[in-house]
Design a protein around this nucleic acid. Structure first.
Lengths: 207, 207, 207, 207
DNA sequence: AATGAATGAGACTTCATTCAT
DNA sequence: AATGAATGAAGTCTCATTCAT
């Protein structure tokens, strides 16, 4: 943190009492609970205590509202991961930290982040490009992380990245808070499974 | 055996040309392309060349139509995996075969199977129970597969199962046919990544 | 009753096992419970254990089905009233007996009779004529009954008839079986109220 | 008091030209012409020159629209009767006035009032309670009116009330404007029939 | 006499969105 | 920035009815 301290809000010329953020919050909450197509503008408005028409003071269309939520979500995950990365230098430690941050973001109450995993860009053609671009920006970060790993020769790094992110993202499907493992533990176990190798040492059964 | 036997088992007044299967096909196609909420009964009907109301001769509600598609999908994946398993005895070979069968089912043109991965049961409360029950039936098969693996002591077998299935299922999100790797190759790479161990040092084991 | 005795059914050429009567029963039951517009052919069919299309083996349209029920209903009320009239000669006794018979018919389980009171002919233009004609046939009977009463000069006999029948018919709106008074009692009280005169004798308050 | 007062009490952003009343009018007109089940939202909308969906700006469901019409109807009848009662003190005069007011309300062009008699609450389960409650409110007024009558001992006052109201209400079934008697005349005749006593012998009393 | 599938119209209702105020 | 009313299209589903079998 630099000079600008807590009390002094950044001088954005947005009316201080704009309720756009509230709208985004509500939309995020509903999108990630019910999906995009399963959520109506009415519901979002009701959640904020507005009338449906009023939403259009802040966002031109439902699609754009999603895009805004999505952007915030990617931002949050990026931030979380970057903060986590800042604490480690070892490549395996770094990827583990990234997994923990990613999983915490998409499993906990950060609705924006969860939307990024929940909503398929292809379902909203009008903004598909924008969504994919944002998601790609984030995933390139993972490409770098995986590339930095010291791996056995001929390891398929792309498959590794996809496997890891896939496992993490899919967990949103079955994870329920208060379950056996916390997001942090879960992330670590996934990484451990990959790192250690599962073929029993002695048997070397292989093919 | 008299005259009226083999050819006409009991087809008497059965209207053999029910178009229910076509409806299921169309529904599966659209559900997995556009999602459940994003698909309309109108579209399904149009795809079969029926009027929307005619769909209700075969399925009482949209929800039930989904449930029927879903059931067929689980059936198909189960069958595919079981057939694949029949060819192997070694636990690692078996799980690899299951991964290949699973991935081929949910990435190729088997729309029913793809719907199982695409649609979240929680999005359709009216039939959530039914969907989850079917999916669970299938997943228990995986629990057995993972349990059969000879693994280092204290390996978290649940995490392993979730990781593997998660990675497979999520691939539906990004996979495009004609890509770099076929479903079969992809599945094998995922399994290989897990089996070998990626830490450089004791890379001795493996295939 | 003439020669044709009980065991020998009149030689109608209707197939003895026709289920048309069952259909009529079911239709009557539902029409008088839910009204005409509020009852569907599906419901009627289900009540008889048929499919909707099968109803059309017996009745060409829903309207005609109503007309048939209605006809049976008028028939039943007429019969009941005529039987009741057969037992009395005194005009007041006769009208009281008619009221009792009428009320018992439209309040008890005779669904056909109840439909006659429940359904407004005007709601079913296609058969309105037929319904009204049948109802009129019955009401002419009441005109005769009222005309036969020895009444004070200048009594409005038409108003009397309308009032009496109106009170009787409307009771279908509020009457619940098992209530304070039976249909028979109720009918008698109505007649008594009319016959006795309610102005208190001595006061002669009137206008 | 400053400038901005009297003329604009609080009308600020109130869109004064709501068409809800027009919708109610149209609904009442159609409900009492065709019955509740026999009337469609389309028809109502067309009658007001709206699109069907626009009706839902004002009423959440067809049922609620009926409830609103019904409420207005009860209100109107109550008002009419109470106004009529205000002019009389003699109990017989009062009940006669009530009958006249009631009958004029449900036979003339007050569609709201007519709906109250036309529609059976039991046909619309979702709002049955509300309708019955309103109707009961009105009928309690009649209980009081009848109780106030000086009647021969042991007269069944409940039967009297039901008979009178039944006769009045049922007249909606057969009455056609421009007929022999006006609603006012009809009501008076009904009351007269009850008051005088119709047995020939002691016809002394009366008007 | 009855079935099962389908029709075609239309039911009620909801959707995202617009716009004058 | 927000409202209340409205739009126009479309949503799921139901209706009476038809017809080959």
């Amino acid at each position: 943190m630099t000079a600008a301290t807590t009390a002094t809000p950044r001088a954005r010329i947005v009316h201080a009492d704009s309720r756009a953020p509230q709208v985004l919050d509500a939309a995020a909450r509903l999108f990630c609970r019910q999906g995009y197509a399963g959520t109506t503008m009415r519901e979002i408005a009701a959640e904020v205590g507005m009338l449906p028409g009023s939403l259009y003071c802040h966002f031109a269309t439902k699609d754009e509202l999603l895009a805004a939520v999505y952007a915030r979500g990617v931002e949050r995950i990026c931030d979380a991961v970057e903060v986590a990365l800042g604490r480690h230098e070892d490549p395996w430690r770094r990827i583990e930290a990234a997994c923990v941050a990613h999983l915490e973001a998409i499993l906990r109450d950060d609705d924006d982040a969860r939307v990024v995993v929940r909503v398929r860009p292809g379902d909203v053609p009008a903004v598909e490009r924008a969504l994919v671009a944002q998601r790609d920006r984030y995933e390139s970060l993972w490409t770098a992380l995986v590339d930095a790993l010291p791996l056995p020769p001929r390891t398929d790094r792309r498959a590794l990245r996809l496997m890891l992110l896939g496992a993490l993202n899919w967990s949103q499907t079955w994870y329920r808070p208060g379950g056996a493992a916390s997001p942090r533990q879960l992330a670590r176990r996934f990484v451990a499974l990959l790192g250690r190798g599962l073929h029993e040492a002695p048997q070397a059964a292989g093919r």
